[in-house]
Design a protein around this nucleic acid. Sequence first.
DNA 1: CAAGTTATGCGAGTGCAGCTCATGTTAATC
DNA 2: GATTAACATGAGCTGCACTCGCATAACTTG
Lengths: 212, 212
Amino acid sequence: MTSALRRRPAQRRSVERVERMLDECARLLDEIGYEALTTKEVASRAGVPIGTFYQFFPDKQGLVRALAVRNLDAFLSRVSERIAGAHLEHWTDLVDLAIDEFVAMKRTTPGFAVVDFGEVLARPGGPPLEGTRRMLDRAQDNNVVVAERLRVLAVGLLDAPPGDGFDRALLVAVEAADAVLKVAFRTHPDGDPLMIAECKLLVRRYLAEHLP
Amino acid sequence: MTSALRRRPAQRRSVERVERMLDECARLLDEIGYEALTTKEVASRAGVPIGTFYQFFPDKQGLVRALAVRNLDAFLSRVSERIAGAHLEHWTDLVDLAIDEFVAMKRTTPGFAVVDFGEVLARPGGPPLEGTRRMLDRAQDNNVVVAERLRVLAVGLLDAPPGDGFDRALLVAVEAADAVLKVAFRTHPDGDPLMIAECKLLVRRYLAEHLP
DNA sequence: CAAGTTATGCGAGTGCAGCTCATGTTAATC
DNA sequence: GATTAACATGAGCTGCACTCGCATAACTTG
């Protein structure tokens, strides 16, 4: 995975600065959205001069991409924790678990509602966005990466038939779930419960074709 | 529906100009994508001064929104024609028909691969886009409008139980299908046939819960 | 048809955001 | 302490979306 950073922060202060910039980026995304977010504002809020901003981030996208990477790592480690904690009766429990964690982060993690894993969410009525499909990995679409890492996570737990068919099915499920959850959160700030339920139903019904 | 146009072209020349601008917009979208598209370039290619461009379109978004509206109208009238021509045995035939027409337009209609009904497609590796969720109707998400108009089209043909439940199901189906088809066309220029097949399966499996 | 009135056409210019780069400053090495 | 390398900085450059005041054309009226 190509790093989203131009230069890796070596000293303590630099590491803190990069973290602060990501935090401020997340807050600003919640406040004003991606389009209105300016690199100058992120830098100034983090107490970092604009020139230094560009020492670490190649451009505005790189900033958001770095945030997306942080979000995906946080999501996967939270899902892992949940899996360790709960005991899964059926593969459908895993689907519910992942969707529930995603919903939880949408509600609580700053900036997650806007960027999650890189698909920058458009502001209703706002101007258009581009190039957010390959935030996590410049060589592959976001959800391909997400699906792959979920597959690795799940492969030991459920006796899925390995192969292209299942990989494709997982990708389809991730894409579809992502789309429906976006609607759920556009309609309702905490995510329309009916839509979240439909999302789970959609994924279960579909994956039932590929899993026992 | 709020018009995407600032001023409705009255005279013949103006109508032609607006059409030309939309055509050039579509071509440029295919060539360089939304982000790189400049209003100056659209205007100059259409042989229209930039000031006149802004007489008709409120902004860059308005231009693309107008194209999205044109696309949706074209899509729906083509679907209507197909329905009139074919005879539908089962509601699943209607699903296939709509998806097939969508795929056909993705392949042939200029600009459709990028904007379809307003969800501007990101260029892989390109910069982000925002605010394309409400292109068709400023008050509602694109796919709500698409779902609604598809519902009107379908309601006479299949004995669907009218009500919020079915409306929501249709919206979920449209969102999910849209997302999966986007993947299909990102992977493969003409749309990965396996993905298109999976899309049909996804929608059928899900809607089977709500239809006989 | 001429004068007046409204609508439309026009492009140089403005503001602003992303991003750069020459110069100043600190740390590392000898 | 001197030399060199790495890092920090913000004024300024570039390029795009969009405006605004004047020019031109099209209607209306006496």
